[in-house]
Amino acid sequence: MSATRTISVTVNGKAYEREVEVRVTLADFLRQELGLTGTHLGCEHGVCGACTIQLNGRSARSCLTLAVQADGQEIKTVEGVAPSADELHPLQEALSEHHGLQCGFCTPGILLTLLEFLDDNPDPSEADIRLAISGNLCRCTGYQGIVDAALAAAERLRGGAAK
């Protein structure tokens, strides 16, 4: 048993204080300690991108971050993406409409990656989007539905024509 520390984090706007073992990854902390199991682990070596969260507004691999390193930081996970229990975020809607998910396991990481990307690039090309999600592995979709969804969501977020 390695040492523990008490940390305070804000996740999806909610403050938490917990004692954690210092070797526990942020991904395991979110999933096991806070019960936020929407963040998934696909490879635990920083390649697949399923565990992508946002740390202070920037996407990051939560399998390559220790929970202790998140002390005092703001985290956003997939559970914090939809505006309410009845509504989905435009990117979530677009993913469903463009069949950008099949098994859905990689989807949380895709969402958190693309949300940051669309903030930085409101009017991206298809190539831009492919580059942006090149750090997220999806075995089901061939990425095409994801790319189409991102294009559609970008347009919607810019206030363009719906769908």
Binding site: T37, E79, G104, P108
Partner: peptide, 21 residues
């Protein structure tokens, strides 16, 4: 038709095997 599976997957509310505690 849009898939019935999607909302729970998109919200992180699906239950995969490692989510069972």
């Amino acid at each position: 038709m849009l898939r019935l599976e999607d909302p729970r997957l998109l919200r992180g509310e699906a239950r995969f095997i490692d989510d069972i505690k």
